[in-house]
Each structure stands twice: as C-alpha cells, then as structure tokens.
Design a protein around this nucleic acid. Structure first.
Length: 265
DNA sequence: ATGACACATAAAATGTGA
C-alpha cells in the first residue's frame, strides 16, 4: 500500500482554506499534518476538506496562535496530544493509523529574538520543548515502531539549510544551541531526516521564505525549518520525501511550503 | 540586518511569527 503523507505550516487555516483545497486536489495526499491553524478546535472549518475525502480530522487548536491538526482519508485507531514544553499551547497532535503507523504533527516554539535562554523566556521554552519531546520519544517509543514525526521544528540544522550560514549563525532558528537540541532529539530514536536522504547536504534546501523581504523567494533567501523524520522501522519503507516549492508562488501563500513523504507499507 | 508583511484579537494597537 502506497501512502502519501504531508506536513505544512499553513499560517492560518481561514485565509488558506482555498490553497489547502487546491493542494489536496493536486497532490492527493492520504494524510496531511498542519501547523499554525490559528483557530479553536471547535471552530475548525472541516467541511471543505471532508468533501475532498478527508473525513478523519484530529484537531488541537487554540485561539489566535499556534494550533495543529491532522486530516486523513484513512481512519484513526487512536489520537492524542502531548504537553511538551510545559505550556498549555496547542503544539502537538498524533494519530495511529490502522496499519500500525503513528503520525505526529508538531509545532516547535519559534523562540523569540535572542538565542540565549537566560535572557529570553521564549528561547528557554523552545529548548524545554525539544528536551521534553526527546525524552518522551526515548521513554515511550522504540526504534522498531513505525513513526513519522512531521512538523515545523523551527530549526534549520545544516549550513545548507539557510541561505547564508555565516550571516545567520547567531540568529534564532539556526544558532548552535538549538541545533544541538535538535540533534539530541534526532539521536534519541535514531530518526532519519527524510528530505536530506534525497537532497545531499552540500546542496541548499529550504521550506520557508519570509514575507517581509519582497525578494526573498526570487533571491532564494530561505530556511529549512520544516521537517519529516522517520524511525528506523519506518525509514526502510520510505520511497520519497520532497519539499513542494510551487505553493510559495500561489496567490496569498503561506510563508512555509509542504513536505511530501511517500511510504510503501 | 534581507528588514517591515501576515494573521489574529472583545477591534486599535499589539502580540507572534523566525
């Protein structure tokens, strides 16, 4: 059975409903993980996606900020959220599909302006979130389980994951301390960074281009903040994983683009 | 600084994004 599973930081489900419907129609994923839906759970506009076949919807929303979801053509055997980071904000939802595959939609805190936890509580929260997530996977899960960890991780770990490493190495999102936290979490369950299996680390690869600078897309001033990770048991069944850049050029785009991972179960 | 937009909110000015 071939499965397509996507992750996409949609930056507000309401202004992006049309874009998401277009994406679902054109790319036909079986499951899509969303971040930054920016709406309460009970106000999530699920009907347009149900009409496209995404009848199964796990929503962890909140007012105004953050919020994650998983929309699926396949039924869920289970769904749950973890309170990583110790705040009450909605940054995680996971589902188990009937075929023993577990899929997580994760929105790691952005981390504010200064990459120092002693002066910036938002950055401290980001590091605590990484630690909690790492500990949970290490304690509650094992490498022989098929797990996909998808989401906006808000860290670009490699030098070629940002458009100018030297310039950005002291910036939140690319600073060494958060890269260390990402790497520690990655090691905890021997995760594979899937898109980098297909685009070698000597080539630039991005999933986010900011709105503020008008020429960011044109000049390719991007960051790879979005990730799709597989456990060893799942990795051997992955057949492709790629960034879907064209959505960034659509009308009224999200600043993030989707990552599409294909699995043969 | 690349460097000032997008989205949300008890609704105008402010928080958050990264």
């Amino acid at each position: 059975m071939a499965l397509k599973i996507v992750t996409w930081n949609i930056n507000g489900i309401r202004p992006r409903t049309e874009n998401l419907c277009r994406f679902l129609t054109e790319y036909q994923p079986d499951v899509i993980c969303l971040q930054e839906i920016k709406i309460q759970t009970d106000a999530f506009p699920g009907d347009p996606f149900r009409e496209l076949g995404y009848e199964h919807q796990a929503i962890a929303g909140q007012k105004a900020y953050h919020g994650v979801a998983i929309l699926s053509k396949l039924p869920f055997a289970d769904q749950f959220s973890c309170p990583w980071g110790g705040e009450s904000d909605a940054r995680h939802v996971a589902v188990k599909l009937a075929n023993d595959l577990e899929v997580h939609s994760i929105y790691i805190p952005a981390g504010g302006d200064v990459p120092d936890p002693s002066v910036n509580v938002k950055f401290d929260h980001k590091l605590r979130f990484w630690n909690d997530m790492k500990d949970w996977f290490a304690k509650e899960r094992s490498t022989d389980q098929m797990i996909l960890a998808n989401g906006d991780f808000n860290v670009a770990p490699l030098e070629t994951d940002v458009w100018n490493h030297k310039r950005l190495v002291k910036s939140v999102g690319h600073s060494p301390i958060e890269v260390e936290h990402l790497e520690a979490a990655k090691a905890s369950l021997d995760w594979t960074d899937l898109p980098r299996e297909y685009v070698p680390s000597d080539q630039f690869l991005y999933s986010w281009w900011g709105y503020r600078y008008k020429l960011a897309v044109e000049k390719d001033y991007g960051w790879r903040l979005d990730h799709s990770w597989a456990t060893p048991a799942l990795k051997e069944r992955v057949t492709n994983s790629e960034v879907i850049k064209p959505t960034r050029l659509w009308e009224r785009p999200s600043d993030h683009v989707p990552i599409l991972t294909e699995i043969d179960l």
